[in-house]
Nucleic acid binder design. Structure first.
Lengths: 225, 225, 225, 225
DNA sequence: TATGAATGAGCTTTCATTCAT
DNA sequence: AATGAATGAAAGCTCATTCAT
């Protein structure tokens, strides 16, 4: 409840990050909050290696030394932006939402897929800067890789299985491997997200229509109806 | 054919990059070649900002000053690794291959798609380090964005249209927007490529079978046959 | 006698330092006492320049700011550890002890020397951390040099003279310059102290026997008896 | 021979340090030489921790970065000033000189002692800044402790034994433990050196007379002749 | 009195770039 | 063309000191 208040006041991703960090390390001062905010934006915009702590400090309206009062190293700053979010927010959120959608739209696969994809897109939008940071930096920092819980993928996979199983049983869809199917959904979604948000962000995108045609492709392929 | 010579001597991507660079700037000395080679690998492994020219020089077995004999700045080194490739190699190659496949497998959409996807995967594998560099750095350097010719996307799109048009005319597939369809193909392919090469590179992957099931999804969706 | 109380509560050197400081500045709070204690140990172990106020504070179990409530600067902290001790304790003590020993063992030079050397060794042991600080830092801080009273050396010298004079008069020893002789005694004692406490502190040392042979050397030299 | 030239041009200690360093790492550029020179003086004057690399650089007339081209860290700079000297110069020198004196003045203990003490004093004078650095810093840096060869002490001890043995055999002096005697000599010498060079350097000191009276004390003690 | 967050000057170190050889 | 010593601006980080609470 208190978190929702913070989210309202601040940007989505940053509010969530700060909420998760506070949950791990206790309430933070205003300056620490501003450092986190500034760091997320800087890292997302320019990448970790190309961001100077001096830049983070100026953008946060804080002395450079203050950063190191709260985070012993620049690397720790990066890691502590990402880790709490996975630990406290993302995983529970992702699994829980899936189940909610499934029960709400029981029996209607198209409706379930639509709901999940939309919520996934909303999640990515909300955490946009963090998503960028992750995409750009995971490969270079083992500490970040360690921050992504190993069970994250498995949790998602078993969620997918639970959703698909009844439809396969009833013969309404092909008996696909849920992991393989999941990969396709994720790929299509990521592809769309990148196109919409990174490649051509200035164009007008109709999320509903686009999702509908992705679902159409997934359900029917290119076959004429 | 001339390329095969270069490929024999060097790694795929590096040979191609050097070939393209030589086409623009004339034949290069052995040291320059080694600098290019070292830079591609370093940038791919650690990212541009986190790579020191000193590191590039050591890996190339060259004095640090030598780099700046051949490339006035570090940034220029990055750009000149990428630009010639697009100008001389990638675009013609991509378009040409598409047409070849189309005529070879005329009338058989599945065969055309299979051929294109396989060649695309092979291309990505061959240029793997360069692909990494591009993915990581394009966002941060306008010079790189400028290096990707504007007509690249259009050329690919029109290629896709040429392929799909006859099938749509004959009512064998739905009248999809070729650009939209292209996006799906690319997304699925990229998704598969990332999974195979970056996320779980140690697993055994059967490219043929995977491509077959991607095509299956694209053609038939989840519907039971 | 009053000192014994302090000694009982705290370490020798630290108790003495605190006693002297309180004599100058009035009674101190528990926190101030702990700061002094921590500072003496830190300076002795790592040197003044290499000791961070932060380290002193943590070791004292005190906030960093608290240090500066009691000592305006780090340098003042150093100086105030040393100065009161010289002003109130060391000088009177040294002179007084000398006289006591002299009267107790009147006429027996060997006994006088033995008593003085033992008490000197005990003094050095008791003030070990302070001795270290002095040795390490005096050269770098004029404020410390000023803290050592100019009459200290003279007082000691005249003490030595008083002791030696009657023996010289009676022809029992050579008519040596007391200052010169003092230097030899001090050198031998310091040499022994360093060897015992700094160079090979883990070895077993028999102070009584060692002092006896130093005295032997001083009295008889290498000459066979 | 070339070394003697360098020694002539430069200060004693610095010339010797540079010579020893060059013997280990090959000939050095003028700037590196000046960095070494500046570092020795700075460390000796202000101590390691209180010396900024910036200060060393300015005194050497060199850019700060140049220091780190030649020495990876400030600590390495300190260690590399000391280590080569022990490895190449001090130990051989000390042992060799002892033997020379012994044979030259065979049979005359007073002459041997005089020669050794004078050469030791000359050595300390020549390496004065280095001696200061060692005294101040050895305690704080394990790397420095490791730089002093373990056999140094033993070599000196066995030298002392060789010298004393014949005199003891002939009954000309007491059968003292050479190590114990050595300690006394060293203590007296260090005591004199410190007094002369550190405590009261402005006074006029007659080394010959002082050494003579130290020897007198060592040979005859306080006993009237 | 005591706190500890905040500061910013200053520290050691890195690095792209220059230039005499 | 090639070198690598030299540079100095800027990086990440430390630390004595201040100040609102």
């Amino acid at each position: 409840m208190t978190e929702q208040k913070a989210d309202g006041a601040l940007d989505g991703a940053i509010g969530a990050i700060i909420g998760a960090l506070e949950q791990e390390e206790g309430p933070m001062t205003d300056k620490k909050r501003r450092i986190v905010e500034s760091a997320v934006l800087c890292f997302a915009e320019n990448g970790y290696a190309a961001t100077a702590t001096n830049t983070i400090a100026r953008r946060a309206g804080v002395a450079e030394g203050t950063i190191f009062r709260h985070f012993p190293t620049k690397k720790e700053l990066l890691v502590r932006l990402v880790r709490p979010l996975f630990a406290h927010s993302l995983l529970p959120l992702a699994v829980e939402e899936m189940q909610v959608e499934q029960t709400k739209s029981a029996g209607d696969l198209r409706a379930i897929m639509r709901a999940i994809m939309k919520s996934r897109l909303a999640l990515a939008d909300r955490y946009a800067p963090l998503v960028r940071i992750l995409i750009q930096e995971v490969k270079f920092h083992e500490e970040l890789q360690a921050a992504i819980p190993a069970n994250f993928l498995e949790a998602v996979r078993s969620g997918a299985e639970t959703i698909l199983a009844p439809f396969i049983e009833r013969g309404e869809i092909r008996p696909v491997d849920p992991l393989y199917f999941l990969r396709s959904v994720i790929s299509l979604l990521i592809g769309y997200y990148l196109l919409r948000s990174e490649v051509a962000p200035q164009a007008h995108w109709d999320d509903d229509a686009e999702i509908e045609s992705i679902i159409d492709l997934l359900l029917n392929g290119l076959r004429p109806r």
